[in-house]
């Protein structure tokens, strides 16, 4: 193992962005220390499921597992899990970072720091009208991802049965003045539609209703994918965000109050399950970290890009909502910039 105190680049955050950034810097021969607060690397995206239907739907979740494997085989990259940054001293090109790992405090020197703190999914209970956390059969898309990834099936939390009729409510925590999140999380339309297609492929009998404001594109093949969704008879598109989800404590069935644009009236429609497409917010722990590093927040509440030249970089979704694909591209480009910086350019 190389001397841990002699790593010029410190990457904070072992999610997909941090991992890719570390791997890319390693390819350029730059010694890296990757710090992750949790017990293992991977971050949020490592708990997503494959959303393929007949063919790959380009959700990029498999790439995360692949990169995770790549870095686990890379003993040259120093990986500190379960470690937290407690202090940062020094400036430009010569930082002293204190970190706590398992109660022990140590200090690292770094010529550059990359912040890849990541995001938290929006805490859906903040939108009380949808009843998340109160009504059993209201789940988040993230819950659904984990069901599919770790159990390979979907079911109603109340009775374990396969829901026949699911409503997907978009923009939960995004584009929402009432909670102060004035940005589009950019990923939710695509992931929700991909989940729907994956579920409909596995269970053709399940119908889905997609309740949205505007459909946001995601990548080169999205156009064809969206057309396939529109042609799918089992997916109903309704441009209306519901005002409330009610539930029957007896049957655990749900009623969603929405404006049905097809019928031209406000209805309360029954569903077996409601999935909230939660958006992104800056990771909770990123704010104290930003304070330590003297980083500000931008208008959308994500980490603002620091002024160039002081050796601090921000990459991935903590700099603004990004899907896995664009987080990887961003992390790669950050690696090139860090390398430039270290070479005095």
């Amino acid at each position: 193992m190389t001397d841990e105190n002699n790593h010029p680049v410190l990457i904070i955050g072992g999610g997909i962005s941090g991992i890719v950034c570390a791997l890319e810097l390693y390819r350029l021969g730059v010694p890296v220390t990757l710090i992750e607060k949790e017990a293992s690397l991977g971050g949020l995206a490592a708990r997503f499921c494959c959303k393929a239907s007949e063919a790959c739907n380009k959700c990029f979740a498999c790439v995360v597992d692949k990169k995770l494997k790549e870095i686990s085989e890379q003993s040259q990259i120093s990986q500190l899990t379960g470690a937290e940054i407690t202090g940062v001293a020094g400036d430009q090109g010569s930082y002293k970072v204190s970190l706590a790992k398992a109660g022990k405090v140590s200090e690292l020197e770094a010529a550059a720091i990359v912040v890849a703190a990541g995001i938290d999914p929006y805490e859906a209970s903040g939108k009380g009208e949808y009843g998340y956390g109160v009504i059993k059969n209201v789940v988040t898309a993230r819950d659904l991802e984990e069901m599919l990834r770790f159990q390979g099936k979907i079911y109603r939390p109340s009775d374990g049965k396969l829901p026949q009729n699911i409503a997907f409510i978009q923009c939960v925590g995004s584009r929402d003045e009432s909670i102060g999140n004035l940005y589009c999380s950019q990923v939710c339309c695509a992931y929700a539609l991909r989940l729907i297609r994956a579920i409909r492929h596995k269970y053709p009998e399940v119908n889905a209703t997609f309740l949205y404001m505007d459909i946001q594109p995601a990548g080169a093949s999205f156009h064809d994918f969206l057309n396939a969704c529109r042609e799918d008879k089992g997916i109903r598109f309704i441009r209306s965000l519901p005002s409330r989800v009610y539930h029957s404590p007896v049957t655990e069935d749900l009623r969603v109050r929405l404006a049905d644009t097809e019928r031209g009236e406000v209805v309360e429609e029954p569903f077996d399950m409601v999935v909230l497409s939660v958006g992104m917010v800056l990771k909770k722990e990123a704010k104290p970290l930003a304070n330590l590093l003297g980083l500000g927040l931008n208008e959308e509440g994500f980490l603002a890009s620091p002024a160039p030249g002081n050796g601090i970089f921000v990459t991935g979704a903590c700099a603004g909502p990004k899907d896995i694909d664009r987080s990887i591209t961003h992390a790669k480009s950050t690696a090139a910039l860090v390398h430039n910086y270290l070479n005095g350019r």
Binding site: C50, A61, C62, Q151
Partner: peptide
Amino acid sequence: FHVATNSGVKFSE
């Protein structure tokens, strides 16, 4: 049978 890196459950099933 088509799988992805993260389809352990599908693999087993």
